[in-house]
Computed example of a mutant assay.
Amino acid sequence: MRIRVERLQEIYKKFALSYGANDADAQVFADCLLRADLRGHNTQGIGLAPYLEELFASGVTRFGQAFEVVKESPATALVDGHAGVGQIISTRAMSMAIEKAKAVGIGLVTVRNSGDCGMASNYAIQAMEQGLIGISMSTGPSLVAPWGGRDARFCTNPLALAVPAGSKDPIVLDMATSACSMGAVVLAARDGVLLDGKSVVDGEGVYTDDPSRVILNNMHRESRMSGALLPAGPKGFGMVLLVELLAGLLSGERSWENETVATSQERPAHYSQTFIAISIEHFHVPSAFLAAAERMVETLTGSRPAEGFTKVRLPGTGAVDKEDDYRKNGVIVREEEWEMLVAMASRLGVEVPAA
């Protein structure tokens, strides 16, 4: 089904306002969820809303928290988010990285004590839209086992990269560093389909492609895990570790002082992020870089496809056209996710805009 952009955005904004956001923060929050929907990452937009409601209702995440700069240099900063809202903290942190990159060539801001920031590419795109290269990454609740193990020790540790490519669609990589995102596994369990390869490990330590052996209830608000998600093989495990080191450890969010990485009711997940902005002009002539990026895209997309493929596609290809279509004709969402959003709005006393 398709839902008008304005309708979704208004619900998201009213949702934030109902939990104490000021108007500016509510707009940022709504824009972040909507951008995920517009790019086809519904699990980080409409599908994420019920989980965020749980965080807000329990007081784990709160609007209006301090954005404390703990340490700072011309190119770097360490921020404490004081359990604020991930979308707000991350937008501010990337803005800080962008200003540093414009001044000295590169900006790196790492955040501890943050919240779930949703779609990681929101913030990489934020830098790309200003002509910079953007990189963002995040940690969170323990969902992923180390390669060769069975117990959850890491989040899906999403990683995003956004690079301008002149007249071509920007190159936008947005991926979980696990074999599958948690949202994809929940949806597969809900739909009763198998995963693409053995991407999860069940409670008995068996690697499997059956999500129902890990997700014990298929509705998002009530899903429970038995077992864990897996990295995409040993190389994928390396990517999981990269994000863990550059976000979790560098920020000081996680110390690994004990085997299970202790959490509490007030802090059930270790959310941390790192944002990097790179100014092209500090390294190369921008027009030459963009021309080279255009030629790279043309060369790769013009390559002969292999058997079973129609063409070579780059990360982010077609996303601009999809966003244009969704803005004109409405965002495609799953019916049960729309029903969950309407139910959530009803619980909060939030009016759902007319179709």
Rank of each mutant, 00 (worst) to 15 (best):
G236A: 06
I171V: 15
D169T: 10
P146D: 05
Q130Y: 07
L230F: 02
A228H: 00
S178L: 09
K235A: 10
L161C: 02
I215P: 01
V214Q: 02
G131R: 06
F154Y: 15
G131K: 04
E204D: 15
Y207K: 14
G192A: 10
V186F: 10
P164L: 12
L132M: 13
L194D: 10
P211R: 04
P231G: 04
L230R: 07
V201K: 04
L216P: 08
E204R: 13
T208R: 08
D202R: 12
P234G: 08
M182A: 14
A228G: 05
P141R: 13
N218E: 15
M225G: 02
N157E: 03
P170Q: 09
P164S: 12
Q130W: 08
A228P: 07
C155V: 00
P231M: 03
M219G: 08
G203S: 13
P211D: 09
S167M: 07
S138C: 11
S142R: 14
V206K: 15
D202E: 12
D151M: 08
A188N: 06
D202C: 10
M175A: 09
P141A: 15
L216E: 11
Q130A: 14
V172N: 02
L143K: 03
V144S: 01
Q130D: 14
R224I: 08
K235V: 09
C155I: 06
S136I: 05
S178D: 03
I133W: 00
N157M: 06
S226Y: 03
S223V: 12
G131H: 07
G203V: 13
R153H: 11
P231D: 05
P231W: 01
R190E: 13
A228D: 00
T156D: 01
P231Y: 03
P164N: 11
A184M: 11
L216D: 03
D202W: 11
D202P: 09
A165D: 10
K235W: 09
S138Y: 01
N217C: 13
D196A: 14
R224T: 15
R221Y: 10
G148I: 10
T156L: 01
A145E: 00
V185I: 13
P164V: 13
A165E: 09
L194F: 05
G192L: 08
N218M: 13
M225T: 06
I171Q: 02
P158S: 11
R224K: 15
L195N: 03
G227S: 03
G134Y: 05
